[in-house]
Every structure is written in C-alpha cells, then in structure tokens.
Nucleic acid binder design. Structure first.
Length: 531
RNA sequence: GGCGAGGUAGCUCAGCUGGUCUAGAGCGCUGGAUUCAUAACCCGGAGGUCGAGGGUUCGAGUCCCUCCCUCGCCA
C-alpha cells in the first residue's frame, strides 16, 4: 500500500482558531479523505506550536502555568477541527516529549556535522521590547524603536547559526529538477528569485537568562544558555512525529500544506535542514494564499478575522458540509487571495448544493417512490440510454478526480462529482420519465421497462457522484448514499464503489428512502449569520 | 528600488507553443419550455473595442516595445 503523509503547519497556540487555520487543515483533510478512499496508507498531521516566549507571558497574564495555558488553547484548535469534521491522524504539540527529544537530537546532529555553529550576531536591539528588529525595519524607523521611539542599540551577541548558505546550489537544483516541489507556480518563482540573491546563514538560537522562570522550549544541546529559536524547532515536527520504527515508512512527507507567509521556511530552510540531516525531501510544498473577509484584508487592527464561532454559525444555518464545500471550492488555493463574502457564499450554496445536488437527489428519489413504490427499479442490462453512456461518463469523472487530486486541484476535483449530478439533471429533462409514467397503461406496457431503466440510471449515477463528493462533504454525501440504500465506502474502496453496477451498485428491489431535504434553498436576502 | 504575477462579460475566472476566438465557462440577469423536484431543472438571449498606444505578421487576447493600473515576494 503506498503511503501518503501530509501535514499542515503547527499553529501558534496563542492564536484563536480562525478561518485560516481551518482552511489549511480542511485542505489537508479533503486530500487525506480522498487518498484513504483510493487506497493509500495516509497519515495526516496537524498540531500546535507552543514554545514561543509570548506563550509564557500570556500564561502569566492569565495566572496559570504555561502548560495549563497551552493545554487550554491547544484544545480550542482540537475543538475547532472536530467541528469542521477534520480527520487528522495525529495532533502534535511541540511541548510533548516525543517532539522535544527528537528535535534536540536533530539539532545535536547538526552541531556535530558543523552545519550549526557558534557565531556572532550583530543587530539592532530594542531594549523596551527585548527583541531585535531587522536592519530594514531599523532603518525605516530611523534606528529608533518602532514601539517606544527610543533609540535602538547596536548589539552583538553569540548565537548558533545554521549554515544555510552551503545548500544554495543543491536547493536550486532540486527545485528546478522537481517542478512540483514548490507550488503553485507563482510561489516557486518567488523562491527561485530570492535564491538568486544568495543565501545567508540564519541564527537558530538565542541566549536566555536563567531567571528561575518556568522551563519552556528547547535548549541548545551542551549549551543550555541558549534556547533554540521556536521556528526552527517547530519545523522539526514534521519529522519528529514519524521518526519511530512504526512510522518511519511515512517519511518523506508527500505534501506540506501551508499559507504563503511561511513559504520560505518550508521551501528553503526546512529542505536545507533535511539535506544537512541526510534525509530525503518532501514531495511538494504547497503554499496557498489568504482568505479576505468581505473584500477586506483580515487583520488584528481591523478586528475582522472570521473566527471559528462565525464558521460555527454558518455551519448551524447551512450545515458544516456547506461550509466545507465553500471553503474547499472557493478558497485561495492558487496564488491570489479569495474572498469570504456572505452573498457569494449564498450564491454558491444555492447554485451548487441546493439547486444542484440537493434538488437532484430529491427529484430522483421522489420519482422512484411515485412510480416504483420506493424500490430500486429493474434496469435489465442496458447501460447506454438517452444518448448517455453512463459507465463511461462516470468512470471518466472518477479518473479526472484522481488526476486533479494529484495536482491538489480541489476545486476541479469537487466539480467532478457535481458534473455527474448535472448530467443526471439533463438526462431527466431529455428522457422525461415523468411524462413516460403518464403514458404507461399497465405493468405489461413495454414503456415500463424504459421508465425503470431511466430511474435506475439516475440513482446509480447519483450514487457514484456521492462517492466522489464524500471527501468534501462526508455527512451529506453519506446521507445521499443512505437515501439510495447504498453503502458508504471505506478505506481503499473507491474503485469498487465507483464501478457502475459493480459489487456495490444499486440492487433492484432494494428500498430507497425519502430523506429530509439535503440542502434547503437559502434566502439571499437574509443577513449573514453571526457568532 | 530589485524580482515576479496579473489586467478578458455585472461577479469569479478559462483561453498552452499566434489561424474553428465571427471571443468562452460558471454564477447573476432576462425570455421560453416543462412539471418529477428544494419558485428548482432544461433550452435560448442580452452583455466584452480581451488595460492604453504603437509594432512584427497574410493573420494577435495570444509575440515585441512603451505607458497606465493592481497584486505578491524581497530590500
């Protein structure tokens, strides 16, 4: 069984879960669900990054221990992901020993190999903030603190550095010989452009004073006066989690999903570290863009972050699967930002879910009830009818789904399932089963067989469409399968279940259930739901 | 300032190496048909001087130049 290991970034534990965290993790979830269905041995990883110094500060403000604070906030991410029906196989926290011990080991290895060395760091220090600011920021503020306005101090301190510069050629070569390594294309160009300007070694630690405060973070091996920078330690999570005898087979990761702001770390620093550790590199680093809210950039100062509670409100009104569908199909998977706009949400919801899938399921099930007492009609042996070659048509969309998932094109893949639904709608209009039903004089009327064939084809096509839609809307697609009396496929069963009238095809005589409306039409005038 | 991406219907976008593009899709809008269905589905229509100007060519949304605008990355 091929393995497929995919990751999201680990999220800063002080943050409140918002649409951005949910989006990246949802992408991973949809891909993971599809891969499992298609037979891969999948490991999907997400988690929290907990060792920043601000975590200590905030815990103090809240009057709780750092661990308690981190526990509480990590749980908020778990809850958010549970609400979104996200199916991570593991949730790593950098404060866990399994992470800390191995991350220390990697650092030690890099020290031993000389890829991490002790050097002098010269920079502009802001005493008020107790942090360094970059040269460009310092210059922009006339060498005064951007916060307090007091003069910055030029300081030199000893730091450990990672010899990033040594990997420039290998990185360039790798990116050029592996066209899918950095995606999408525009992001790859950015990385290559920046590589052309040359690489500098990067500091990976900072001196800490032992003031008796709580033990937090990872110290430099053999030099506990230095704490490993949180970002470099955080990157290690992708490896620490699978660096066990049981999980080694998953490495290297097939796909790292992340947002564009941390592309550099993932496409350059992390691969260079892996080279230094003599580890194989991940297959693809995919950096998506951002969601904006109602056309405006989300920011702390604007206070317009779409937080998990607002997504919950959407979920309550329109269903969680509708939220998943909107994010997955309308999200900023490419290089440009996407808008989470209420009017747009309602448009997509009505057009694709209510008028599309929901209405189609409703009309098919209803006719089977009306004309065949709610039992799957007998299709005899015909498969091509009304100008549609159903086995061929559905198989084409199944294959297209696979190809699109390979390219992480979720929008395209989602529409493969929907395309079958559209085909069913067109087929019904062309063959007019409802009109046929009126012409039928009795059970011996040969037109009865035509009617049966038409409705069987509709139901079977809808079944396969649902299988393809399962990764996007696990609840609703399963609900359609339930209505049709079909089984929901398990891991590795895509092929068998997507097979027209195969082992899992609809069986003549089996009951079809009229369920509640799947996605009821939304009122376009209604205001957006609020948390 | 350096590098990069892009400006195509009301909206979101396809249009690869120039010629079925007399310019497309989906949504929205509009007319019709229909009634199995969630005022839905199906068919048709309107709507664009393809950012502006110049050039190459028998022929340019597609190549070249200049300019304008937007966005991203870096400094």
């Amino acid at each position: 069984m091929p393995t497929f290991y995919l990751t999201t970034p680990i999220y800063y534990v002080n943050d409140r879960p918002h649409i951005g965290h949910c989006y990246t993790t949802l992408l991973a979830d949809v891909v993971a669900r599809f891969r499992r269905l298609d037979g891969d041995d999948v490991l999907m990883l997400t988690g929290t990054d907990e060792h920043a110094e601000k975590v200590i500060d905030r815990a103090k403000e809240a009057g709780v221990s750092v661990q308690e604070w981190a526990d509480r906030n990590a749980q908020a991410f778990r809850d958010a992901f549970a609400f979104m029906e996200l199916s991570q196989d593991d949730f790593v926290r950098t404060s866990e020993d399994r992470h800390k011990s191995r991350a220390s080991m990697y650092i030690q290895k890099l020290v031993d190999s000389g890829d991490i060395y002790l050097g002098d760091y010269v920079g502009w220090y802001d005493p008020g903030q107790e942090e360094y600011v970059t040269e460009s920021v310092a210059k922009a503020h006339d060498y005064k603190s951007p916060v307090s306005g007091k003069p910055l101090e030029k300081r030199t301190e000893q730091n450990y550095f990672f010899r990033l510069s040594a990997f420039e050629d290998r990185l360039n070569k790798h990116i050029e010989t592996h066209p899918r390594f950095v995606q999408p294309e525009a992001r790859k160009n950015e990385v290559l452009g920046r590589l052309r300007q040359g690489l500098q070694d990067v500091p990976v630690s900072r001196a800490v004073k032992d003031d008796g405060s709580e033990e937090w973070g990872i110290r430099m091996p053999n030099d506990p006066g230095h704490r490993v920078y949180v970002w470099i330690e955080a990157l290690c999570n992708y490896l620490t989690v699978v660096d066990t005898p049981e999980r080694r087979q998953y490495w290297p990761a097939s796909l790292h999903l992340l947002a564009k702001d941390i592309l550099w770390f993932h496409a350059v620093v992390w691969p260079a570290m892996l080279m230094a550790l003599d580890e194989p590199l991940p297959g693809c680093v995919y950096a998506h863009a951002y969601f904006v809210a109602e056309g405006r950039k989300m920011s702390k100062s604007m206070g317009n972050f779409i937080e998990i509670d607002q997504l919950r409100a959407y979920g309550e009104r329109y269903s969680v699967d509708a939220v998943r569908w909107y994010l997955a199909t309308q999200g900023p998977l490419g290089a440009t930002d996407a808008d989470f706009a209420h009017a747009n949400f309602v448009d997509i919801y009505n057009a694709e879910l209510a008028n599309g899938l929901g209405n189609c399921a409703s009309r098919v099930v209803n006719m089977i009830h009306k004309y065949f007492d709610g039992n799957v009609p007998d299709a005899r042996d015909a498969t091509v009818h009304g100008g549609v070659d159903w086995p061929h048509l559905t198989a084409g969309h199944v294959q297209a789904s696979r190809n699109l998932f390979d390219q992480v094109d979720l929008h395209g893949a989602a529409h493969q399932g929907l395309a079958i639904v559209t085909a069913v709608d067109g087929y019904i209009n062309n063959t007019e089963p409802f009109r046929l039903a009126k012409k039928i004089t009795g059970p011996d009327d040969p037109q009865c067989a035509d009617l049966a064939l038409i409705l069987y084809n509709c139901a079977e096509a809808l079944r396969i469409a649902s299988v393809l839609l399962l990764p996007f809307m696990p609840q609703k697609a399963a609900a359609v399968l339930d209505m049709l009396g079909a089984k929901t496929p398990g891991n590795g069963e895509l092929e068998a279940h997507a097979n027209w009238r195969g082992e899992f095809g609809l069986k003549t005589g089996e009951p079809v259930v009229k369920g509640a409306g799947l996605f009821m039409r939304a009122d376009t005038e209604e205001a957006a739901p609020t948390a």
